[in-house]
Amino acid sequence: MYSVSVDNLIFGCRDGVLEIFLIQHAHGPASGKWGLPGDWIKDGESLEEAALRTLSTRTGITDIFLEQLHTFSSIDRHPEERVITTAYYTLIRPQDFATMAGSHELDARWFSVNQLPPLMYDHQHILQRGLLKLRQKVRHEPIGFNLLPAKFTLAELQKIYEAVLNIKLNKPNFRRKMLNMNLLIDCLEKQTGQAHRAASLYRFDQSIYNDLKTRGFVFEL
């Protein structure tokens, strides 16, 4: 016999740093340890419904797209029983949501993916698999819609790509590639309240964004 669960990789980007939302367990063999937020599948519930419920419990989000990452089924991944888990991932703006711990958790907070506490069970492996998927995705699909305000600068967009890819990008090349994709619409506005030279504001063209997510592209670094 085995149990079935879901685990969520909730990624965010803040101040040019890619973060992951983690919870600290209060009970059981993982008591006091940090891990990905997850839960058991309830009767009559699909995997996706369980993942969305888990996301909503910790963030209040009810209408965001979750993408399935992988099913992890190693026999020894849980110390007490056979547990098969399916991981989902999503991208949100951490500053836009009041994240919270669940009823059986000690704490919940955001961590930089480069400065993590020791994670329970195989959650480090799951996270690394998620990071690899996210970095592959950014090279073939547009990102930023859930990570940026409605109007943003090219510098803010570049910071998102740099945080996800964990590299420094050439500023002129990045801007040229983004503008050549016709993905961005110039708002004909400038930043306000800046001590330095105000940068132009852009927004995503929703139809082109959706089209590029469907048919994909190759983002050459």
Rank of each mutant, 00 (worst) to 15 (best):
R58C: 07
L9T: 08
R129D: 13
A150C: 08
A50T: 14
G44R: 02
N180I: 08
I20S: 00
F219Q: 09
L157M: 11
I84P: 03
S112Y: 08
P37N: 01
S5Q: 03
A198I: 10
L221R: 12
R175C: 01
K168E: 10
K33R: 15
D63W: 08
H70S: 11
E67Q: 13
Q136M: 12
A163C: 02
W34K: 04
A155Y: 10
A150P: 03
A108G: 07
V6W: 09
T90C: 15
I143G: 00
R135F: 09
D39A: 13
T192E: 12
L212P: 07
A98Q: 14
T90V: 14
T71W: 07
K159P: 02
H125T: 12
Q95V: 07
H140N: 15
E189G: 04
K168V: 15
L22T: 05
E19P: 05
P37C: 01
H125I: 12
T71S: 13
R197W: 02
M178Q: 09
G102C: 08
Y89M: 14
L132E: 13
Q115P: 08
Q115I: 05
F152C: 07
I64M: 14
Y2F: 06
S31C: 06
N182K: 14
M100C: 13
E220C: 11
L148R: 05
V138E: 02
P37W: 00
P94G: 05
Y161C: 11
A101H: 03
K168F: 09
R53E: 10
R197M: 12
D39Q: 12
E81Y: 07
I160G: 02
A163K: 05
L22D: 05
E162T: 10
A195F: 10
M181L: 14
G35R: 00
D63N: 09
S31I: 07
R109P: 06
Y209R: 01
D205W: 03
L91W: 08
V138D: 02
L9M: 12
L132I: 12
A198C: 09
H104P: 08
T192F: 09
L157R: 01
N182H: 15
G144Q: 05
T99Q: 00
A87C: 13
A101K: 01
L157D: 07
T90A: 07
W34I: 04
A98P: 06
E105T: 08
L134I: 11
L184F: 07
L221V: 13
F174I: 10
P29G: 00
L106Q: 06
A199Q: 15
H140E: 09
V218G: 05
K190G: 01
E162I: 04
R197I: 13
H140V: 15
I143K: 02
T85R: 11
I61R: 03
E141Q: 14
T86K: 11
H104A: 12
W110S: 05
I185V: 15
L134E: 06
A26T: 00
S46G: 04
M1W: 05
K137M: 12
S200C: 01
D76V: 11
E49L: 08
Q68D: 05
S56M: 14
N210H: 10
W110N: 03
F111R: 00
S73F: 13
V138Y: 04
V164G: 05
G144N: 02
L36R: 01
Q24L: 07
A98F: 02
A50Y: 07
F72S: 08
W40F: 12
L147R: 02
D43I: 14
P94K: 04
G16D: 01
S73A: 15
L165T: 06
S5A: 15
M100L: 13
P117Y: 01
G16E: 09
V4H: 05
